[in-house]
Nucleic acid binder design. Sequence first.
DNA 1: TGACAGGTACGATGCAAGTAGAACCTTCCG
DNA 2: CGGAAGGTTCTACTTGCATCGTACCTGTCA
Lengths: 110, 110
Amino acid sequence: MPDTDGHPDREEMNLRSILNALSDPLRYQVITAFLWEPEGTERNCSSFDFDVAKSTLSHHFKIMREAGLIRQVDRGNSRKAHLRHEDLEARFPGLLDLLRRNPDLPAHGK
Amino acid sequence: MPDTDGHPDREEMNLRSILNALSDPLRYQVITAFLWEPEGTERNCSSFDFDVAKSTLSHHFKIMREAGLIRQVDRGNSRKAHLRHEDLEARFPGLLDLLRRNPDLPAHGK
DNA sequence: TGACAGGTACGATGCAAGTAGAACCTTCCG
DNA sequence: CGGAAGGTTCTACTTGCATCGTACCTGTCA
């Protein structure tokens, strides 16, 4: 069962939800951004400067959170998100490599 | 560039289009159905008995075709579709294995 | 020559999803 | 204390997409 923040357990993850989460350009960009950085990197939503309202951003992070792509933890002032590397690798081996090899080009931007 | 039927070359394939194509339940089901069958199996649209209008079915096949997931070739009377195993494996190694390991669950719904 | 079967193209419709604004909460800091 | 920063939730708007009906095209076959 997902916890109160909507994080599913590793076994509860469902590939279709993952694919659905990745089918949006903004969300895809967030995930590939994480893949460029060292494993375990924590970032808050607003560190990605997308040109959208923060309610919209929160909405997208919720979808990634509930699909199991990211985990968000309270860190006092802000809320840090990180990619669930280990869980994703265990549950869907090969997925992250696939994404890593196909990064979203940042050039066409926001 | 894509041919007149909208089939992209191997190099033109784009992961986001692939993921987008797979994010629809019906299309996901078609692809995993192909993965259960021997490589190279050809089927026409109507052999999948989905409860949708044939214009709808044609629409879905177009999306999969233009994403590069399937290839459709004229066989006189009908049009046969087959999964582009080799191209997909070369362009996105690991993708098909990933899908094969996560067949569409009959019960889960959306 | 029909009639039919498999597919595609086009136009219209209805619902799901992305988007934004406002209210609210918590934490940090002057 | 009061205000600013980071996020969530709620509501409302608007766009996108799946869906369908119809018309149309091309082969097959009686």
